[in-house]
Structure formats: structure tokens, C-alpha cells
Simulated assay, not measured.
Amino acid sequence: MARSRENRKIKQHIMEEWTGKVFTSLCIVLLVVTIFSLVYFVATKGFSSFIKDGISIGEIFGGTQWKPEGEPPFYGALPFIIGSFSTSIMAAIIAAPLSICAALFMVEIMPKIGRKYLQPAIELLAGIPSVVYGFVGLSVIVPFYRDIFPGQGLGIAAGATVLSIMILPTMTSIATDALAALPPGLKEGSYALGATRWQTLARIVIPTTLPSLMTGVVLGMARAFGEALAVQMVIGNAPHIPRSLFESASTLTSAITLSMGNTVMGSPQNNVLWTLALILMLMTFVFVFIVRCLERRANR
């Protein structure tokens, strides 16, 4: 009896193990097929503008005029590319110091107050819909810039300000985890040598965790680069290269969301919009590659 029960338990254990392996394998296969199908679909649609419609790469990446319904049509996407990079880089420049300082406050300076009050407040920002950020930016930030600087207040500055608030929770969470994972022996050794708290933070803590901190910055930029609705509401959506931060501009996501529903599938304009989507996807891969490189550097 005892041996039969043991055999039954062993068979049940083997069956559960194989069931788990089959289930996880199917999930992995489904995930890989989905990712490759998505990449293949966007790539085939994106390359159609070059292969099928005969539009040159230089015209799309170097052209400054966006007139798809003109005679002749122009498909210059350079203003959108510059707008996307400008808003995401400026948003990262604004949010990076704030997120690092908030993480230092929560982990190193006043962890009890920071973890109890500041961290829940920052995490609350991550759950706010992007349309709310866009509406607040349109109601508060745009009039603020309009009263202080020349112009209508719409532009890269307003879009970058909204994006910096949106990516702040992501960057702060990653910076907090990086600082919390730092071995305490490094700080204790610095204090034992007579260094002050600020000297320890500036010369030991931040340089040691810099790759992980930069990972948070890159991930924040990746989210800012792909954001559509919030930026679309405050940037002005003008298809030209702005001469200042307070002139109306446009981004890749804004051009796609505003024009995709008004085009015919397979038309040259529709194919060019898919090319813009392909650029967004390739930039996502670049951001992921940069994050992987930073993670390898942090693990050394």
C-alpha cells in the first residue's frame, strides 16, 4: 500500500511537471509568434512606400515638407522625427534630476517619510490616464507659457513638460530600486574614512549606481518617444521644423494618429504612415538595446 501510494505521488508529480512545461512552452511560442508577426506586419507595410510607391528614403528622412495631398505630393517626415526626439530628450533632461533626487531622498536621506508619503504620491502619477495629462497641460501649462514667452504656448516646451511628469514615476521607481540594492558596505566604508553624507552620495552612491540610473532614464525616454495623446494636445501639430521651443510642432505619433483614419489602405499616404510606425518600432528596439548594454555594464 505504501509503495503504491508513493508511486501514485511520483506519477502525479511527473504529470504536474510536464503540464507546467507544456503550458509555459505554449505561452513562450505564442509570445514569440506574436512579436515576430507584429514586426513582420509593420515592416512589410512600412517598406511598401519604398518598394511599391517608389518614394526615396532621402525624401522621407530628409524632406521638410509634409503635403501628402498636394500636386505633387511631399512626404517629408523630418519635422516629425525632430519633434519626437526633441520632446523626449527634453523631457528626460527635466525628469532625470527630479527622479534621482526623489530616489535619494526616499532611500538615503529620509527613508521613513519618503517611503510613507513621497513614494505613494509618485506611484499615483503612473495610474493617471494620458488624456488627463494632456488636458491639464492644455489648461495650465500652455497658458503659463503663453503669458511668459512669445507665441501661443503650444510647442515642444509644453509637450516636454507634460512628458516629463508622465515619465517621472518610471524613472523614480528604477532609481529607487537601484539605490536600495547598493551594498551597505560601500557607504559604511566611506563614512569610516571620514566622508560626509553628501560626499558619499556624490562620489560613491551615484557613480556606482549610474548605469542603473541611466537605465531608468532610457526607459523613460522610450515611453516619452511613443506617447501620442498627451503630446498631441499640447504640441500644436504643425508639420514643420520649429525655430524655437514655443512654436507649434508635431511628432511621429501625432502624425500617425491624426492621419491614419483619413487614408485609404494601400495608398501612398497610408504606406508612408506605416513607414513612420516602422521608425517608431525601430527606435523602440534601439532603446531596448541601450538598456541591455547598461544592464551588462551594471552587472560587471
Rank of each mutant, 00 (worst) to 15 (best):
M171R: 01
L182W: 03
G134M: 10
P268M: 11
S248T: 08
V29A: 14
S244H: 07
A195M: 14
K45E: 15
F135L: 15
V132Y: 09
I14W: 08
L186W: 13
L30K: 04
V264G: 02
A180W: 04
F144M: 15
R5W: 10
E227L: 10
T215E: 00
E123A: 05
E69R: 13
A192I: 08
G70H: 06
V39F: 14
I174M: 01
M283E: 06
K45M: 08
A249T: 02
F144D: 00
W18L: 12
I81L: 15
T275A: 11
V291W: 00
N270M: 04
G54Y: 11
I10K: 12
A77H: 05
T176G: 03
T19I: 05
G62F: 11
G134Y: 01
V264N: 07
T200C: 01
F285T: 03
I94G: 01
L193A: 10
I10H: 09
M15E: 06
E108A: 05
R115C: 03
F135C: 06
I100K: 02
F289E: 06
P143T: 02
G127T: 02
H13P: 01
F246K: 03
R297D: 04
G159E: 03
V29H: 03
I109H: 08
I235V: 15
I89G: 05
G62A: 09
R8E: 12
L258H: 06
I156L: 15
Q65N: 06
R223T: 00
L125M: 14
V162G: 00
A178V: 12
P211I: 10
I174H: 00
L294Q: 05
